[in-house]
């Protein structure tokens, strides 16, 4: 019976699993800062996606009666020199940043989990290749590679950009996953499954990865904020999201020079970006403490 193998770990029973989740959730609820962060993320998410319905202006609309107006009236965040509404632009940018962050983080964590676990479990060539790729990317920062590749996705969908961002975000986690797999591989429940003839890939997805769910959840959260930051950096130079599309990165790039003269153009997108990233990082920190109380106050 293949079922027996999956019940061996003990912690995998449905009752105990839910009670552990409840425990983690209770611990998470106890952390005021993390809850605050979560509330901010949810709020920003809601505002970004509801803004087309509540705002008086759309991000593509020009107001020819208001060029470079400071905040006020129907333009809550002011307008740009072309008459674009800064609130609508910022909200549109935030939508894009959030989607890029979430989608990219999911991809990056999934990649890290799969590659790290395969490298740790099977060793050999996969393992060596992984470690070499990680070292190579230390020599050549992802920023440079994505910038060089940017002409190839110019004019195509931004999804290629997200895939590229994710493709350069998984290495550090993969290394940690690999290390954890090395020790999990020797545990009784994995050995038992192996001796019952369960194939390696199924052991990885059924027994090894679920055992590091906490690490993966934390990692995915932190990845969201790092990907949002990476997007900003690349879009600032025009290597990321391409016009006419708008992201927080392109806004910051376009209006960084206006920070002194027309501060609303720069500080609204930049400020909201920092608030968003801080909030996500607070959630990530809270999750870490909730999953592993021993690390409380660390990192």
């Amino acid at each position: 019976m293949a079922n027996t193998a999956s019940t061996v770990p003990g912690a995998a029973g449905p009752e105990e699993a839910s009670s552990r989740l409840q425990l983690v959730w209770r611990r998470f609820l106890r952390q005021r800062l993390a809850l605050f962060g979560l509330a901010i993320v949810v709020l920003l998410f809601a505002v970004a996606y509801l803004s087309p319905y509540i705002s008086l202006w759309q991000y593509t609309q020009l107001d020819f009666n208001a060029f470079l107006e400071p905040p006020g009236g129907s333009h809550w965040f002011g307008t740009t020199q072309n008459g674009f509404d800064v609130f609508a632009l910022t909200m549109r940018g935030m939508q894009k940043s959030l989607v890029i962050g979430l989608l990219g983080a999911l991809m990056a964590t999934a990649l890290a989990a799969t590659i790290g676990a395969f490298a740790g479990y099977f060793g050999g060539v996969v393992n060596t290749a992984l470690l070499t790729v990680i070292d190579l990317l230390m020599v050549l920062p992802a920023f440079l590679i994505i910038a060089i590749l940017s002409p190839s996705f110019r004019g195509h969908t931004w999804l290629i950009f997200v895939v590229l961002l994710a493709a350069f975000q998984w290495m550090v986690t993969a290394r940690i996953v690999r290390g954890m797999t090395l020790s999990l591989r020797e545990r009784e429940f994995v050995q038992a499954a192996r001796f019952m003839g369960v194939p390696g890939w199924r052991i990885i997805f059924r027994h090894i990865l679920p055992n590091m769910a906490s690490l993966l959840i934390i990692d995915a959260t932190i990845n969201v904020s790092s990907l949002i930051l990476a997007e900003v950096g690349l879009s600032f130079f025009g290597f990321g999201v391409q016009p006419p599309d708008v992201s927080l990165g392109t806004l910051i790039g376009d209006y960084a020079g206006a920070a002194l003269t027309f501060p609303w153009e720069f500080y609204f997108p930049a400020g909201l970006l920092v608030v968003l990233v801080l909030a996500i990082n607070l959630v990530g920190d809270g999750l870490r403490d909730a999953f592993d109380p021993n690390t409380q106050g660390r990192a």
Binding site: S225, V232, G233, I252, G253, A256, L273, V274, V277, L278
Partner: peptide, 10 residues
């Protein structure tokens, strides 16, 4: 914590 949440540009 705060510095690492701010992009280098900003």
């Amino acid at each position: 914590f705060v510095t690492l949440s701010i992009p280098a540009v900003v």
